[in-house]
Amino acid sequence: MRAVRVREFGGPEVLEVVELARPEAGVGEVVVGVEAAEVLFLDTQLRSGWGREYFALEPPFVPGAGVAGVVRSVGAGVDADWVGKRVIAGTGGVGTYNGGGYAEQAAVPATEVFAVPDGVELGVALAALHDGSTALAQLERGGAVPGERALVTAAAGSLGSWLIPWLSATGTTVVAAARGEAKLQRAKELGAHEVVDYSQTDWADGLEVDVVFDGTGGAIGRAAYGITRAGGRFLGYGAASGDFTAPAEARDDVTLVGIFQPDPGEWQELTRRALDHLAQHRIAPTVGQTFPLSEATAAHAAIEARRTVGKTLLLP
């Protein structure tokens, strides 16, 4: 089968298309015929060599943390009824990165496999795996209520297409921060009440918010932390700038909520809930761009150049 492999740490050009043996389902595993593989910003970071203190990766390795497709086979200890079902699946458990998603077939833990409801496209369903579950968790932890102002950074990204509509529906005033007119327009279409362009140095001037959902980190995250009102909450879950938010000075009057590390059972329940929202048409996540598997290099380059909107998928 074809797969995309990181031959060495470096830029997008280190991704190469290779032929590998088809995987076999081991004990407690299923093999998925991949119809779509998600491309995360984390993939681009790990490909470059970032995060080696957190993830034990050494080239060559096949990246990819999530896939959508049809179950082809199951290993010992797995219900044979999974065969033929449309599913989304994580390639590893919570807090791990096993890779393996950028391929025509992937062997995944059966505990990370979720049936896709009828009527939901596989590519759209894949947005529930990491984005939908993370958004649900952040919304519950953030506790935004009607009348409050919430700032969403990286607003045109894949999490933004979940967070903005849900926050808006609660009666929260949503301030969306993104880079460039096209992304700001997308945030408005999602339901943002106000938009700010954080490519402008004065983007935060005059802003005050009650809760921040920060998917950007770095200097933008620090600025967002600074405009959080006393008694507010700051949720830092992303590092699209290259690193997580590290406030220059901690504030006693703001609750700082770090990276969410749920137990496996909780994570599975969040994913099922996200899929149910899709099935009930309560949310319409943005799949902004797709690339053939052979063009994984272009997909990574587009993400790193901040040219993408919403979810990015590879189609084997």
Rank of each mutant, 00 (worst) to 15 (best):
G119R: 11
L278G: 01
I220D: 03
A115S: 12
G28F: 12
G92V: 01
G10W: 08
F244E: 02
D79Y: 09
G157V: 10
A56K: 13
S133P: 03
T297A: 14
G143Y: 10
I220G: 01
I164R: 00
A284R: 11
P316M: 11
K188M: 06
A107S: 15
G231H: 10
E140S: 15
G77C: 06
V120E: 15
T297G: 02
I283E: 00
Q289F: 01
A192L: 05
I283G: 00
S161R: 04
D214W: 13
A230F: 03
Y97D: 02
T201M: 02
L293T: 12
F55M: 05
S168A: 13
D81H: 11
A299F: 03
A56P: 12
R229N: 15
G226I: 07
G11W: 04
H300S: 04
Q261R: 07
L129K: 01
I227H: 10
L159C: 08
G160R: 00
V31P: 10
E295P: 02
G160E: 01
G49W: 10
G218Y: 12
P165W: 00
R251G: 04
F114K: 09
G10V: 09
V32H: 04
S294G: 06
T290C: 08
V195S: 07
P12M: 02
E112V: 00
A192I: 05
E112I: 00
F114C: 13
T271Q: 13
V108N: 04
G28R: 14
L136P: 01
A36C: 15
T96I: 00
G242R: 07
S199H: 03
F260E: 14
G66R: 01
L313Q: 12
P59W: 08
L314S: 04
R251T: 06
G218V: 13
G242A: 10
V116T: 13
P146D: 09
G217M: 11
V74E: 07
L207W: 12
V31T: 13
R233L: 11
V32I: 12
T312Y: 04
T201Y: 01
G93V: 07
V78R: 04
L40E: 11
G226K: 12
M1P: 12
A239W: 02
Q105H: 13
V74R: 06
Q261M: 03
G95T: 08
I227Y: 08
G226H: 09
E266Y: 05
L20Q: 12
H193R: 03
L42M: 14
E24L: 14
P109E: 09
S158E: 14
L151C: 12
R282G: 05
P146A: 12
V287L: 13
E13Y: 05
H281L: 03
L20V: 15
R229M: 13
T91S: 05
G64L: 03
V145F: 11
V31Q: 10
F55E: 04
E53Q: 07
D202E: 15
G242L: 10
R52A: 07
R186H: 10
G28M: 14
A21C: 03
D118M: 13
G221N: 15
I303H: 06
F291H: 05
Y102Q: 04
V196T: 13
A150Y: 08
E53R: 09
V4P: 07
A182C: 01
E8P: 05
E121G: 15
G143V: 10
P262L: 02
L46G: 06
A279L: 13
E13C: 06
R7Y: 00
V74M: 08
L278I: 11
A127H: 08
Y102I: 06
V195M: 06
L139D: 00
